[in-house]
């Protein structure tokens, strides 16, 4: 899982050396790391509904890795943006505070921090399962903000961000359906 999840990093490095990132490598890198973040986050959200739907157990086992990889690529995405702006804190702060497009992305990454920090089994034990679960519901907000960030960042053709938004919606709806069914079955 981890090897697979880190392949893109190797591909980026290779492409960077061979010039395959194109005429605007920084922009390409920003876009690709952003897309990976969102895709991995949505995959991590699909694990639980998939487990309910199929009865398979492996989705639950890779969920943590998917979430952590999403966080990693999100941090890389932000790091590229920071370096691209020459660590110019004035301009970065202005972006985060004044441009909703940047605000949404920044907030999404901010929400992923506590989740990454409490991703270990030990954290679950320390927080207690109920509290840990409640905290990790932040992932829904992070994913929604991520989709919004992507939607606002696109200049004209909104097809791709809408596809990501639809995927998020399906994953949330199926989760809701399974929870309700679970509850009525328990009754």
């Amino acid at each position: 899982m981890w090897t697979g999840g880190l392949i893109p990093v190797a591909v980026f490095a290779l492409d960077g050396f061979t010039g395959a990132l194109g005429a605007n490598p920084v922009q390409r890198l920003t876009l690709q790391t952003g897309l990976l973040t969102l895709a991995l986050l949505l995959l991590s959200l699909a694990c639980t509904p998939l487990r309910h739907l199929t009865g398979w157990t492996w989705p639950a086992r890779i969920r943590r890795a998917l979430g952590l990889l999403a966080f990693g690529y999100g941090a890389l995405h932000f790091a590229v943006y920071l370096l691209d702006h020459g660590l110019n804190l004035g301009q970065i702060l202005e972006d985060v505070l004044k441009r909703p497009f940047v605000t949404a992305g920044f907030a999404a990454l901010l929400l992923l921090w506590p989740l990454a920090l409490t991703s270990t089994p030990r954290s679950v034990k320390r927080l207690g399962f109920a509290r840990w679960t409640r905290l990790h519901r932040l992932v829904y907000a992070a994913a929604a903000l991520g989709v919004l960030h992507y939607f606002w960042g696109v200049k004209k053709d909104h097809t791709a961000p809408l596809v990501y938004g639809a995927a998020l919606l399906v994953s949330l709806l199926s989760r809701w359906v399974f929870t309700r069914r679970g509850k009525s079955a328990a009754r």
Binding site: A23, N24, V26, Q27, V80, L83, D84, H85, G86, N88, Q91, E94, D95, K98, R99, P100, F101, V102, W152, G153
Partner: peptide, 21 residues
């Protein structure tokens, strides 16, 4: 005058190596 989604204060020169604007 910034674009609603990004600042126009800096630019990336295509073909120049490295990061930075």
């Amino acid at each position: 005058v910034p674009h609603p989604r990004w600042s126009q204060a800096t630019e990336r020169r295509i073909g120049e190596p490295g990061l930075g604007r």
